[in-house]
């Protein structure tokens, strides 16, 4: 009597789950929804609202890909992953792509066999410290207690930074951002270190944000981006060019407001190629011709996503900085759609 639940679940769930085979695109289309691995919760990047709808900057990328592939930005199942389980979830095929502020590194790309499809946020590791301590540079942190989230590259960067500068510190590893925040506010650590975006987001929610400073040193490069499995280049291309389409859309002034109008055809051939009114780019990556239109409509172009979830008008309050278009002195540079 009791084994049945197991087997019933096996038949029902096991049959619906796809294999980690080669053609992810076919799987996704057959399944009717995209499985996207996200953070269990990170302010501005991925969090559920009170209706259970996931929102955030990383989530926006998932929705754009779902819109490009399936035409429906809501056709996403969000699979929450921790720092430790994220890579296995992707490798085993549990998720089709991972949009979980993951740093692009050599070993992850080659040793762990993943393919980073671009960078959706250029970040770097920083330090936050209470103003009253009067510290102005990270080099003055000799002997300080540092709160740090485990399971990320920040641990290694931190160890390297203090080793290179030959100063001592006391690491306090913390499992989640919420705990780290609580520890830092209670003064159990002098410094909180994580990606600068996370620091800004965390500081924004403090009762007295002005009492804390983020030190000028950024001690690492943290290019965060979505990633897919090695070996399925078609699928990797789809995710990469969806991200590029969002970036290019901002560059060419395509927004969710004017996209319907522009999709009628313009006199800019690049825009026309992106939006599928000219050429057959969609066909080349195995999608409908209006794939990019759907992707941009899902949440707007890169700039709109940024403004909505993490930009200066939000509580997170991040400035564009490195994440501005190359035309504005940033690093965002979408290859040509040609």
């Amino acid at each position: 009597m009791t084994k049945s639940l197991f087997l019933g679940a096996l038949t029902a769930v096991g049959l619906t789950a796809g294999a980690a085979g080669a053609a992810t695109l076919d799987d996704v289309q057959a399944r009717g929804h995209l499985n996207c691995g996200v953070n269990t919760g990170l302010v501005g990047f991925a969090a559920p609202d009170s209706n259970g709808t996931w929102e955030g900057f990383d989530v926006g990328v998932c929705r754009a890909v779902a819109a490009a592939v399936l035409g429906d930005p809501m056709a996403v199942e969000f699979v929450t992953t921790t720092g430790q389980t994220r890579f296995t979830a992707l490798a085993s095929g549990e998720v089709d792509m991972l949009a979980r502020n993951t740093t692009w590194t050599f070993t992850r790309d080659n040793d762990l066999k993943f393919e980073f499809t671009g960078v959706n946020y250029y970040d770097g590791q920083g330090f936050m410290i209470p103003k009253e301590l009067g510290v102005t540079s990270a080099k003055d942190l000799d002997g300080a207690t540092v709160c740090i989230q485990t399971g990320t590259t920040t641990e290694l960067n931190l160890a390297d930074f203090f080793r290179v500068n030959n100063i001592s510190y006391e690491p306090v590893p913390i499992e989640t951002n919420a705990e780290a925040q609580q520890q830092y506010l209670a003064g159990a650590c002098d410094v909180y270190t994580t990606d600068a975006s996370g620091l800004a987001a965390t500081r924004a929610t403090f009762e007295n944000p002005q009492e804390h400073v983020i030190l000028p040193e950024i001690i690492s490069k943290e290019p965060l981006g979505p990633l897919v499995r090695h070996g399925d280049n078609e699928w990797g291309d789809i995710v990469r060019w969806t991200l590029n389409a969002l970036v290019a859309a901002e560059e060419y002034g395509i927004t969710s407001a004017n996209i319907d109008e522009l999709a009628q055809g313009t006199n800019n051939p690049e825009i026309n190629r992106i939006l599928g009114t000219e050429g057959n780019l969609g066909e080349m990556i195995g999608l409908e011709s209006d794939w990019a239109v759907n992707a941009i409509k899902a949440g707007g172009n890169y700039g709109e996503l940024f403004e909505r979830y993490i930009g200066e008008s939000t509580p997170v309050g991040l400035s564009r900085g490195l994440n501005a278009q190359w035309t504005n002195g940033g690093l965002l540079y979408a290859p040509p759609f040609r």
């Binding site: 641990e155 931190l158 160890a159 390297d160 080793r163 510190y169 690491p171 306090v172």
Partner: peptide
């Protein structure tokens, strides 16, 4: 290993 541990009962460095 490359990472630091705060409480070490035997000598340990990130190296």
């Amino acid at each position: 290993a490359g990472y630091d541990i705060n409480q070490t009962l035997i000598p340990y460095t990130s190296g």
